[in-house]
Design a binder for these strands. Structure first.
Length: 235
DNA sequence: TCATTAAATTGTT
DNA sequence: AACAATTTAATGA
């Protein structure tokens, strides 16, 4: 269970990996070149901690491929999951802006490719690039809504509703542009994320499918009605 | 490209 | 938690 705090052997990103980084396309040529040169990618095995609470913040992290989980430990020692982090998502900007330590744990749910932008380059882009600022600002704003939603999810004991809202959060189009209509997540991974047994998640998914909100596929879930998923209530 | 086999994932008890 | 059924991925002709 004692995983290394960081992935070993960081390397330069490939062309396909760069294509999966949504904010790169927004930059000017010069800025994009600088960012590309500084970007590092590494692999995270299931259970690996990408960053943990208390560690100094040196990178702005993004998911190129795979699935991560953002969690924290509350005062009474209970673990509380904030959200899953699918491909295309970037996180840690709030911590970087304040030059603080990370206040949450990021753990890989499956074998994942994680990219990191060094803090110096992150700051330089903030100072000079308007599009980059817009992207970061959008992330901050949207995530604020996510944290509030996460509290409601956690307060909610109805398993079906928990699964529904967690799924809706993962399909967030602004925060997670890489997801699309089909979320690649197994029922086991969803169970880890929501904090339920796989059997219960399976039941919940079947119920949601019967309600016409999603379609269950092998190794993934397709969303039919995102709005209804967000506001799902047990009758 | 197709058939066979292994591995992963899902559905059910 | 365990098991069977189903789907995908891998292998080799």
């Amino acid at each position: 269970m004692t995983a290394p705090s960081l992935r070993q052997r960081a390397r330069a990103p490939s062309a396909t990996e760069l294509a999966g980084i949504p904010w790169l396309a927004l930059l000017s040529d010069a800025d994009r070149q600088e960012a590309t040169a500084a970007l590092q990618v590494g692999m995270a095995e299931p259970g690996d901690r990408v960053c943990r609470t208390g560690a100094p913040s040196n990178y702005w992290f993004g998911v190129v491929d795979g699935l991560l989980k953002m969690s924290n430990v509350s005062l009474d020692g209970h673990q509380i999951t904030y959200t899953g982090i699918p491909p295309g998502a970037w996180f840690g900007e709030g911590t970087l802006l304040k030059r603080e330590v990370y206040r949450y744990n990021i753990e890989a749910l499956r074998k994942s490719t994680v990219a990191g932008l060094p803090i110096e380059v992150f700051w330089r882009l903030l100072e000079r690039s308007i599009p980059f600022n817009r992207f970061v600002m959008m992330q901050l704003n949207e995530r604020l809504g996510q944290f509030i939603a996460a509290r409601e999810i956690d307060r909610n004991n109805q398993p079906d509703a928990r699964v529904a809202r967690s799924l809706a959060a993962l399909f967030h189009p602004v925060l997670y542009p890489g997801v699309g209509q089909l979320l690649r997540i197994t029922q086991q991974e969803l169970a880890w994320l929501v904090g339920l047994s796989r059997q219960r998640v399976n039941q919940a998914l079947i119920a949601l499918q019967a309600a016409g909100l999603i379609r269950i596929e092998y190794g993934g879930v397709r969303v039919i009605d995102l709005a209804a998923l967000r506001s799902y209530q047990v009758m």
